[in-house]
Computed example of a mutant assay.
Amino acid sequence: MSLIAKTPEPPYYAVIFTSLRTDGDNGYQQMADRMLKLAANQPGFLGVEAAREAVGITVSYWSDLDSIKNWKENSEHMEAQRGGYGKWYSSFKTRISKVEREYGNE
């Protein structure tokens, strides 16, 4: 998997998940790997980029708002969300944005 997501021409949507982790892994990496595989099979999923250091930032890209809503309501994803509160994250925030422009060198 590429470190930089290959996204289509805008517009599309970005879900930005920023977090502070709790101490220890506590099964985090296994769950993160499972959620990535699960998300990649969801209709509307376009790609993901992540940096996990002192502050974790994961950006997933989606074709439309309905796809984001369906991912949020996925039963296995909901189970992971419930497990994450306090177990893996001491603090987090999710932001949803519409990408209207992109540029760079590939």
Rank of each mutant, 00 (worst) to 15 (best):
S19M: 03
R101S: 13
K69Y: 04
Q29A: 11
A80G: 12
K98Y: 09
K72R: 15
I96W: 10
W62V: 01
G27L: 04
V55Q: 11
N105Y: 11
L36H: 02
G27W: 02
K98S: 11
M31S: 02
V48C: 08
A80N: 05
R82S: 13
F17P: 00
E73Q: 12
A39I: 02
A50T: 14
L20I: 13
N41W: 02
K93M: 05
P43T: 08
N74H: 14
N74L: 05
T22W: 03
S67K: 00
N105L: 12
Y28S: 06
V55E: 13
W62M: 00
K87L: 13
Y28R: 04
K72A: 14
R21H: 12
W71Q: 06
T18N: 03
E49S: 10
K37D: 14
D33Y: 09
Y103L: 12
I57E: 09
G44L: 09
L65I: 14
K37T: 13
G86S: 07
M31Q: 07
H77G: 02
N26Q: 15
T18W: 01
M35D: 01
D25W: 09
S97M: 15
G27S: 06
N74A: 10
V15M: 06
P8T: 09
Y13H: 12
I16L: 08
K37V: 12
K93P: 00
Q81N: 11
P11R: 08
Y12I: 10
A32I: 06
I4K: 14
N70S: 13
G24R: 03
D66N: 13
K98H: 10
T18C: 08
N105G: 05
T58Y: 05
T18Q: 09
G86H: 05
V99F: 11
P43C: 10
M35Q: 03
V59L: 04
V48A: 11
W62Y: 06
N70M: 11
A5I: 11
S67R: 02
V99T: 09
R34S: 03
V59F: 00
R21E: 06
E53R: 12
E102F: 11
G47C: 04
I96E: 10
E100P: 08
N70V: 03
Y85A: 14
V15R: 01
Q29C: 01
G47V: 04
G47I: 02
D64G: 00
L46K: 00
G47Y: 03
G104T: 02
G44F: 07
H77A: 01
S19T: 13
N26H: 15
R21G: 07
K93C: 00
L65T: 14
M35F: 03
L65F: 09
E73M: 09
A51P: 07
D23P: 15
I68K: 00
